[in-house]
Design a protein around this nucleic acid. Structure first.
Lengths: 199, 199
DNA sequence: TAGCTTTGTGCGTTATAACGCACAACATTT
DNA sequence: AAATGTTGTGCGTTATAACGCACAAAGCTA
């Protein structure tokens, strides 16, 4: 009668241990001596008949001088002998959409990441400014907010006549019902804009 | 009579589990329901009286939605993060806000780009998955949508039991009211998530 | 061939991981 | 106070991880 060997993680540990031991050309006896875990237990783990405790897997890892996590990953990445058949790459269904590109200006590229959706009331763009281009935007309708997240480069944002500088990883929120502007201050600046419309 | 509680790794797991459960404000009963592990066992593990099997630690990790390896590290490295108050970081004025970091897992970094705002009904995170970490997410309330935009790396997204692969620059929309999951397939994957709540 | 290692697996026993249940301490309510 | 609910821990039982030992198959030596 098999135990809980069906567990996915147990199977991974089994394959990894067998692989490591094979690479070092160690016998169960040798591995047992290095790790302090009985060879019977090591054999059961390799066969997937036993799910070791973290304490014993720790003894195995330190004894064999490899990291704990090296036993957890799927062996499919390192070796190509898995029969799990969980390689699914269905490309249809209502999910992935390629980005749509909108031209606007030679020094300003606009990619529509998520078009406007009345259910969410926002749209998302990714903008790339280059050559220190300064883009001015007129006031939109009241209540419209704009969230800026700088991906790379340096972006200066103007609002209420004041300029602020955002580095990569920084963001700001501005009310788009006033005049505002952006400027690339790094030669090329990439940032994301989430524009939300009220109600 | 004490068991093998002296093991260093067991003690680490104990502290990490207690910390994570405390951060989520979960009771042993609640954690037991999420993970499928009895609350008595969870209590013993937290007290260092038991060295869990990798199978059960896997159930704990997936149930609490953090990676296996997050329980192995020493808690001394994780600093105190007091994130109790619902402070809004002054969303008025166009002041730039530095990104707020939320710790969750060594293999999953979460940056809050824009915290939830009742006026817009969405929040924006930037997530970095590493080491082929697979992050599972349970079903949220009905009507919640999640927009994913891959910045770098390769992200596999599971919905309705089907996996789809997104490369850098691609995006997808998924209904978050069903169980879904993400997985890093490039060693390190950076992507943005916009979560929108209805009404 | 026989005799001696080395390899991995099977078996019986012990230690303990994991479970369900019950109880005590504390908080909240009536 | 009494009643009710929640939280964490202790206890008895079951499942199984881990051990030591023994055995069978393969390999090497003489």
């Amino acid at each position: 009668m098999l135990k809980d060997s069906g567990s996915k993680i147990t199977h991974n540990v089994a394959q990894n241990l067998r692989r490591v031991r094979g690479e070092r050309k160690l016998s169960l006896d040798g591995a047992s001596q290095l790790t302090g875990v009985s060879k019977a237990m090591l054999g059961q783990i390799e066969r997937g008949e036993s799910s070791p405790t973290i304490a014993t897997l720790w003894k195995i890892a330190t004894g064999l001088q490899c990291s704990f996590s090296s036993f957890l990953g799927n062996t499919a990445t390192t070796h190509e002998n898995s029969q799990e058949s969980s390689q699914e790459t269905s490309n249809d269904t209502s999910a992935l959409q390629p980005q749509v590109e909108l031209i606007a200006d030679p020094n300003m590229q606009v990619l529509t990441l998520f078009p406007f959706d009345p259910l969410t009331s926002f749209e998302v763009f990714e903008l790339v400014l280059s050559h220190h281009h300064e883009q001015h935007s007129t006031a939109h309708q009241a209540g419209v907010t704009e969230r800026i997240h700088v991906i790379s480069g340096v972006l200066s944002v103007m609002q209420n006549g004041q300029w602020e500088t955002l580095k990569a990883g920084e963001q700001c929120v501005l009310a788009a019902d006033k005049a505002h502007a952006y400027r690339d201050d790094a030669g090329e600046t990439r940032f994301m804009a989430i524009i939300h419309y009220p109600q």
